[in-house]
Structure formats: structure tokens, C-alpha cells
Amino acid sequence: MSKSTRALRRPGRRAAVAAGLVLAVGLGVSTQAVAQAAAPTPTKASAAASAAASAKATAAPRSITGFNGDLLTQTADFYGAYVDAKDDAAGPDTKLAKALRTHYLTPAYAKRLTAWEKKNNLDGVLRAQNVPVEWTVSESRNGLDVIVSLTYGGGESPTTTTRFVVKHEVAGGITDIRPTSAAPAKPSAAKRSVSGRTGDSVTRIADFYGAYVDAKDDAAGPDTKLAKALRTHYLTPAYAKRLAAWEKKNNLDGVLRAQNVPVDWTVSEGRDSREIRVTHAFGGGETPTVTTDLVVKLEPVSGDVTDIRRTSTH
């Protein structure tokens, strides 16, 4: 119904209510009783909306968890950080995109992908010219394959989803990215998935920490080029300078607040949109022995990191 139609109906409704009041007073009925009778009763729709709002208010904070050395996590780290690099407000961060491709793609596939891009005039990692608004990385039925779903479009209703099979060699590097019509395995206790949203604070910090852990834990030794590119992209220049001074004084990695690399990590919402919580578990095997909790503060406009502080170790 249009606004003009509603405007035409309102005077008639008010007149009917007024007439009812006059009639009721004439019959000796109190205006309070009429007001109570005229008041709308709660509908199922309003009750449902109230319940939904209550559920939203009590919902657990959103979080993303990664496991060091896990192919699903590494692929999510790669795609998440790559999307961030391509979607930078100042224009694509080509240094970060290049460092990510060098780290995660095998040299042979990187060469083939460049040739494919030249021929097709598309970004070979995304298989598109633009950047997705959402992405999901899921396990497949083959342990060395991962399913990546990229959703494109604007607003709350993305319009197109493309799906790829990302193949890995046993050592972990990506050897192929191919479109597929196969649906990813449904998430369950046995099949995991990781999802992110472009521009979302939790996603961005998970992308940063996930890729940073991968860079620091590279089998050939720390990938300093990728680590530097990540810090340049995600940290404000002022904080990057302060962090370097802190590291020199404390002999620790300032991003991780440690000398070694965590075996798993979780990034979750903080008290407000400018604060993200990061939990790192350190140790060997299936039972990490030390857990550290960090608070990562964000610049309100750009979303870049302005501070990292350790709140507890246990």
C-alpha cells in the first residue's frame, strides 16, 4: 500500500474512533473503558518480532576459529586476506595480494594462473573482476580439496554465488582453482566450514591473524615479506611504529605477544564494534598448555588496528 493511500485512510479511522467515544459517553460508558477497548491487542507478528529481538540480544558473540597447519584454515586465511587486499578503501593493496599469492600458491600454479588471468581478463583467485560480499570455505569429500563459495551482489541480498574446488599438494600449497557445481559438505561435527563477510571487523581480524600465523609458521622459515605486508595493511602507521618499538624492548612478536606460534586461535566480537577479542592457544599435540587473551582495538573509520593488548594468560 502506498503512502498516499494510508494518508487517505487515516482521517476516516480517527473519525470512527471519535464517533465511538461520543456514542459510548452518551450510553454512560466510561471513556477509560472505551480507550481500553480501542487499544490494539498484541498480535502474533508483534510477539514473534519481540521474541526475535530478545533472541538476537542474547545470541552468543560471533567468532571465527582456526587451527595451525589445517588446510581448511589456511585456505580461509588466504581468501579472507586476499579479499581484504583487493577491497582496500585506498585501492587494491597489490603488495599484499602478491605476497599472499607467493605464499599460498605453488610456483608452478602461480605461473599458470598469471597466464590464465592474462587470457581471461579476470582475477584468477576470485575468478571475477570484482570482490565478493561474502565467502565460505568448506571441507570436501577429498582431504586435499577445499570448496570455496564466493557470493557477489549489493546490500542485504547478494545475487550471485560462484563455487570453486581449491586443490592442494600434500605439502600444503595450492595447485589448482577450478569452478565446480558440486555443493560443499554440510557443516557437522565431521565437516567444518569457515565464513566471512567483506568489511566485517571480526572477519578482518581473523583474516589478519590467520594469515599472520601462517606466515610466521611457514615450513621453510618465517615468511617475512608476507608478515610485513600484512602488518602494513592491517595496522595503522602510528601503531605499527609503536609496535616495532615494543617488540625491540620486549623481544616478542607484538602481534602474537609471544616468541612462538599458536596451535589454534579464535577471534570474536568484543564489547563494541571497535574492539575484537583474540585468543591464542600455545603448546604441543591435542592439548595446548598455555592460552593468552588479547584485545585488539580498531580505528572507527578504516577498521585498522590501533592497539593490541594482552589481558590474561592461563
Rank of each mutant, 00 (worst) to 15 (best):
T41P: 04
A35S: 15
P132E: 01
S181L: 08
Y152M: 07
T73G: 03
P40M: 10
A108W: 03
D87Q: 09
A37G: 15
P11L: 11
E139N: 09
S157V: 12
S193Y: 04
P187D: 04
E139A: 10
A229F: 03
T291D: 07
G210I: 04
A115S: 06
K95A: 12
E169C: 09
A49M: 10
D307H: 04
T5S: 13
I205C: 07
Y234F: 15
A15K: 08
T102Y: 06
V25G: 12
A51E: 13
S201L: 05
G284L: 03
T114A: 14
P262L: 02
A219R: 10
G303I: 05
V22R: 09
R277C: 11
K44F: 10
R231H: 03
L71H: 10
A85W: 00
R271E: 14
K249W: 10
R9E: 15
S302H: 01
S181P: 00
H314S: 13
T5L: 14
V29D: 10
A19D: 14
A59F: 06
L27T: 15
A227R: 01
A33D: 15
N120P: 07
V17Y: 11
P158S: 06
V83I: 15
V296T: 05
A229T: 02
G28L: 02
T94E: 12
G210S: 05
A185E: 13
S273M: 13
D214H: 06
E169N: 14
T136A: 06
A60E: 14
P11C: 11
S193F: 04
A39G: 06
A81V: 03
K98S: 15
S30W: 08
A220H: 13
S149D: 11
L71C: 03
W135A: 02
K186Y: 12
T198C: 14
K119F: 10
G155N: 07
G69T: 03
R10I: 08
F282M: 04
Y109W: 05
T41K: 12
T43E: 07
L100P: 01
I205A: 01
N260P: 05
K228A: 13
A128T: 02
S181Q: 09
A281T: 10
V25T: 13
H233P: 00
L294K: 01
V263K: 09
Q36K: 04
R141Q: 15
S46I: 11
G221I: 00
G155Y: 07
A55R: 10
R310W: 01
G285L: 01
A16C: 06
V301Y: 10
E269M: 09
K216W: 03
P179T: 06
K225Q: 12
N121S: 12
G91V: 02
A51D: 11
A59E: 09
